[in-house]
Amino acid sequence: MTDERRVPEDESLEDNIGQQFDRLPATPDDRTVSGRASRKEIVDWWVEQYDVDPKIFDPFTFWEKGAGKIWIFGDDTSSPIEVEGLGMTVMRTRQRHWKPTMSAVQRFAQHANKNVIELSGEEAVRFAQGENIQYEAWDGDWGYLIVAHELAGSLAPIGVGLYLYGELRSTVPKGRRESLDTLE
């Protein structure tokens, strides 16, 4: 995957205030906080990485709280706002490779048309329990993939996996790992 991104730091811009939610600027040209991603960059990333139709994100606003923790909200409110949570976390930026959250993948993966890896029942169970999977059959991009399993005739997203060197690394958070019965 060619998802290595860095939003340029600009010393002439404001600093991030980590305890409040700030709406992302619409475009990079609208940026007022150094290093902050823009709405356009976030949506473009989902389009490039997973071939998600950008219109899927039209009803949502995007916010940053902390350093690169991006939230998606199905409404609008004043900015900045000091609350503990607003919508759900959608991804992490301000790091070498941007990473979608498990919640975002479970919410938006049904719209993805690329970089989705389908696991068998046994592999899906192991992945959901936090195990890494040896997976040589993948011939797509490396990086953060959407991990899914066929269930009742359609693909059901499990979470996010990091694919490197023939291994699919589970990034399922410890608190969300599941002990599942074997899936068929």
Rank of each mutant, 00 (worst) to 15 (best):
I133D: 04
R169P: 02
H111F: 12
K99I: 15
F127Q: 05
D15T: 07
L86Y: 04
E11C: 01
Q49M: 10
H111L: 00
E64H: 08
W63S: 05
Y135V: 03
L24E: 00
T61N: 01
D139G: 12
G87N: 06
N115G: 08
G85D: 14
G161A: 02
M102P: 01
L145S: 03
A148R: 14
E9H: 03
A148H: 07
K55F: 02
N16G: 03
Y135C: 01
V33S: 05
G159D: 02
G175C: 03
N115C: 08
G68Q: 14
P59W: 11
T93I: 06
K69I: 14
E48F: 11
R23Q: 02
G18E: 13
N113K: 15
G175Y: 12
Q20C: 02
E178G: 00
A104V: 03
D29F: 08
S179H: 13
G121M: 14
E184S: 14
I56W: 04
P100T: 07
A128H: 06
S34N: 01
E11S: 04
A26T: 03
Y165A: 05
E131Q: 15
P157E: 10
T182E: 15
G121K: 13
L164I: 02
M1A: 07
Y144E: 10
F73R: 00
G85E: 13
G166H: 05
L155I: 07
Q110G: 14
